[in-house]
Computed example of a mutant assay.
Amino acid sequence: MEKRLRLTKNFEFNLVYKKGRRRVCPLFSMYAKKNRIGYSRFGISVSKKIGKSVVRNRVKRRLREILRRNYNKIKPGYDIVISAKSEITKYNYWEIESQVVDNLKKMELWVEQNEKIE
Rank of each mutant, 00 (worst) to 15 (best):
S83K: 06
R56V: 12
R36I: 13
L104Y: 02
L27F: 10
N72M: 05
Y78T: 12
R41G: 03
I80V: 10
D102K: 09
M107K: 06
L63A: 12
P76F: 06
M107C: 03
E112V: 08
V81N: 01
R56C: 14
K105D: 07
L7M: 06
K49E: 12
K60N: 03
K73Q: 07
K85R: 13
I44F: 12
K49H: 14
K85H: 13
E87P: 01
V111F: 04
E118N: 14
L104N: 11
K52F: 04
Y93I: 05
T89P: 00
N72K: 02
K9V: 13
R36F: 00
L104T: 14
S86V: 01
K116M: 07
S40E: 04
R41C: 03
L63Y: 04
L15N: 08
K90L: 10
K34Y: 03
M107S: 08
I74L: 09
L5C: 08
K85D: 10
L63W: 00
F42H: 02
K3V: 07
G51M: 02
V81W: 07
K85F: 12
G51H: 05
K19H: 11
E2G: 11
I74W: 08
G77D: 08
T89Y: 03
E95K: 03
I44Q: 05
K106G: 06
E2M: 04
R6Y: 01
E2V: 06
R69M: 12
R23T: 08
K52Y: 10
L15H: 11
I74K: 08
D79W: 05
S40P: 05
V81H: 05
I74R: 03
K48L: 00
E118T: 09
K49M: 11
T8R: 15
E112N: 14
R36K: 14
R68Y: 12
R68A: 15
M30V: 10
G20F: 02
R58W: 06
R69E: 13
S83Q: 10
